[in-house]
Design a protein around this nucleic acid. Sequence first.
DNA 1: CTGAAAGCGCTTACAG
DNA 2: CTGAAAGCGCTTACAG
Lengths: 334, 334
Amino acid sequence: MVSVARLAGVSVSTVSHVINGTRHVEPETHRRVIEAIEKTKYRQDALARAMRRNRTDSIGLIVSDAGEPAFADMVHGVEEEVARLGLTLLLANSAEDPVRESRAVEALLERRVDGLIIARASGSSETVITTLREQGAPFVLMDRLEDLDVDQVAAENAGAANALVDHLVEQGHSRILLVAGDLKVPSLRERTDAFLEAVGRNALAAADQVIVEGPVAVAEAEAAVMEALSREPRPTAVIALSTVLAAGALRACRVLGLAIPRDIAFATFDGFAYSDLFEPHITTVRQPAFQIGVTAMRLLARRLEEPDSSPTVMRLESSIEYGSSTSSRFSNPE
Amino acid sequence: MVSVARLAGVSVSTVSHVINGTRHVEPETHRRVIEAIEKTKYRQDALARAMRRNRTDSIGLIVSDAGEPAFADMVHGVEEEVARLGLTLLLANSAEDPVRESRAVEALLERRVDGLIIARASGSSETVITTLREQGAPFVLMDRLEDLDVDQVAAENAGAANALVDHLVEQGHSRILLVAGDLKVPSLRERTDAFLEAVGRNALAAADQVIVEGPVAVAEAEAAVMEALSREPRPTAVIALSTVLAAGALRACRVLGLAIPRDIAFATFDGFAYSDLFEPHITTVRQPAFQIGVTAMRLLARRLEEPDSSPTVMRLESSIEYGSSTSSRFSNPE
DNA sequence: CTGAAAGCGCTTACAG
DNA sequence: CTGAAAGCGCTTACAG
């Protein structure tokens, strides 16, 4: 910068003002400075700049795995809104690991992102929230909501879970296996609670329902579902609460030689990419993942503008794609 | 930092040295400093630190879409190695858009990442490379290699494409539709060239082969394949060169009512997540994506340590998963 | 309309 | 073993 100033025969203040357009400078001087910038191949040092401005025009996004379809779409949504606002996105995966999540938060905070969007990891400790608050960092919670007075956005889980159970009951099922996974994850907990409520509302025998709680990875889900489906009387329908759990459960069905829907009905939340192209067509609850991402970024933008506005919690409606996997007519209703 | 120093009754230099363990300090003094740090809830300012050190211990990774299965795995590989090295990863999607790619490079460079790993976007302009070189930023090219004297790593594409054609010929096919996509993408170009070579080697009539060039998005691929499969004589086998192209091609087959493999054989590169769980089982070339990510980070780490070592270009072997989609026996060979 | 100078929060020779 | 001070590359009152 000083060499630019020298070459243009002006002060560094003037160079700074030319670059940032922050005060008027004579056209002629302006031209000389621009020229000098090009000649010296000068690039602004964002670090030094951020240090003075206390802003970086960048925001951080942490999800457990941007490779999972639902998160991938949320990321796309955030990206779209970020681009529209002229900001930069720094993305990090926590791999569902609280330690990596904390590290990512620290790293992003250290890099002075202006705000953070977080889909918290399962065992995520409260210190993450505490850290954020202590630092006074604006943030919004995405997908996995807590009972906290902060900005949050996620899919409306309860209604979809209810509708799914109603659908299965209509198809004549009364013994359902719920592959619930890690109930420390708020979204899974919500879906499970709604499932239980729907079971009661439909007057299904509580003792006939099986809930597989705990598995996180595909292999764990497979093992747990194998076990659950080996007991008598066998459930006649499966609901998996996430893509990973569905993958494990499907693997278990295959190993046990259970055909879908002939031997067992199957439905899932989130589901698989391009699933319309493959058999079986699995009945799937789709959350408006892209829109959730967009909304998260909008909430954050508002928080940045009005730091003292009262927090908003938003729930976006999910929809259900019905497939042959839950059709008792053994045919594809599509 | 100055308030920590005051509270501990020492100089800021001592505080700095305690934090970084960069020189010996009396145990008693050390204790007082630590205490003061805790009492003041002091956090190091990474920006100021980076500014002085000229290092940030972070690296940048740009892919077109971390949501695509192959890239997702490469990202995971990079992440693993990054974690092992105690670094931080900043991830960005280019959405296959040269403008966004440039912006991401600028943003990461401005944030002073120590190095960059890039899977270049399709229309990626040469200025990206030029910028990187001008800045003297260490970088490695991943997945999409160029004829440049820089560190690079990707799957070995030619051998796999050759083997795939041989396989189809063995199954009796002689009219193949290659859904090649955007031939500006080096990996697709390599696969296409190898396809052509294999066609020649197997003495197939060049005029019987159809190459669909151009489509990038799913819908574009669908339209182009629809067209290609509507002409007579119809190809008896399809090879798609990427996940997205395969999705479009499968959609076209479905619209045309072509069953796989009964009416047409189908094979693809990269393929779908959890594809073993669904029908049809599509013959798929799997690149060692995770390992490619790991290797990219290793190459970068070496570059950081030895800036003047000569560049390495690495090719990692792909493998082929054979599925019923290319089985002329109409049965699942698994 | 422009410049000299303070200061952001650190690190690191230099001196003692 | 420790401190005073220069300097990293910027921005921004302050003065003219």
